[in-house]
């Protein structure tokens, strides 16, 4: 190959690749609307996108896996956390996480309630974009789909020691001044037996008990339907009932019950205070 031929090679390679790329770009534009549900880009979603940009969120978090790696991915966050939870969290992250235990904390942002609502609308739109099913498994913020893996080995070896007290290393010690939702979230992992020993909050992750992802929305459907056997009148009532008397309504499936008796422990009514139950319900009600 002489120099002239190699120049032709360079030009031809570039030309062919560029042409193919442009054709594919045009075709992608044909499909963007459908894949991203463009008709759902409401003014709230657009305003939320601006909140996302103005606060430089991408330089700690990732969205669609793109951004910085200092904070969790938020692509599907609205499917893992309910709107109320996200609202309360965005008002003051320090009421949910502790910098001493996690060694990181999101600084409180200067956002109005409207900003927060718009941001959640934007993140909800993001969570519904058809992105080839990524992530393949839910990316959790804290906790674990497999119970116990968030404990240190010494905590697993000495579950009763004071310093561990059943709390994973990432879980903060909460105080009564905290948001009831945050208190409920801590109880979810610390009551005995711990809820998260059998229930995941990640979609599709069924352990000994069914996943609690979307429990609030599912409860609402269930209570209104004919197949519901319990005595609760609304979703909150149903969640409370499932904690206090698990067998009042049985979720179908041989791994969850036998002879009309749920496998879930019925000891919570005795072991927990009314206030604690309220907090647990407040937390679970945010899982929409």
């Amino acid at each position: 190959m002489n120099k002239r031929q190699s120049r032709v090679f360079a030009i031809a390679c570039t030309g062919i690749a560029a042409l193919a790329f442009l054709i594919l770009t045009l075709d992608s534009h044909r499909q963007f609307g459908k894949l991203t549900n463009a008709e759902n880009i409401t003014p709230a979603v657009t305003a939320g996108k601006d909140v996302w940009h103005d606060n430089n969120c991408i330089n700690c978090h990732t969205l669609f896996g793109e951004g910085a790696y200092y904070a969790p991915d938020l692509t599907k966050i609205t499917q893992l956390r309910g709107e109320q939870y996200l609202h309360a969290y965005m008002r003051d992250p320090a009421r949910f996480y502790n910098e001493q235990t996690h060694r990181r904390l999101m600084p409180k942002q200067d956002l109005s309630d409207e900003d927060i609502a718009n941001l959640i609308a934007f993140l909800d739109w993001v969570s519904k974009v058809d992105n080839q099913g990524w992530p393949p498994r839910p990316i959790l913020v804290t906790g674990a789909s497999i119970p116990g893996t968030d404990l240190t080995t010494s905590q697993q070896a000495h579950p009763t020691q004071q310093e561990s007290a059943g709390l994973p290393p990432g879980a903060r010690t909460v105080t009564q001044g905290d948001d009831p939702i945050a208190l409920g979230q801590a109880l979810f992992r610390s009551v005995a037996p711990a809820c998260n020993a059998c229930h995941s909050t990640a979609p599709r992750v069924n352990l000994a008990g069914p996943t609690l992802a979307g429990i609030a929305a599912r409860s609402e459907q269930l209570v209104g339907s004919a197949e519901y056997k319990g005595s609760a009148k609304d979703a909150l009532g149903y969640i409370r009932e499932s904690i206090l008397s698990p067998s009042a309504h049985i979720i179908p499936g041989p791994m969850y019950s036998a002879n009309g008796q749920s496998f879930m422990p019925n000891t919570y009514e005795q072991n927990l205070t009314t206030e604690q139950i309220d907090q647990l319900v407040a937390f679970l009600a945010t899982l929409k």
Binding site: A71, L140, A144, S145
Partner: peptide, 18 residues
């Protein structure tokens, strides 16, 4: 392995890779 494959929470994983 911890976060994406085993499903350990992001913050818990970050503590384990300090």
């Amino acid at each position: 392995y911890l976060e994406r494959i085993l499903g350990l929470g992001y913050l818990d994983t970050q503590l384990k890779i300090q």
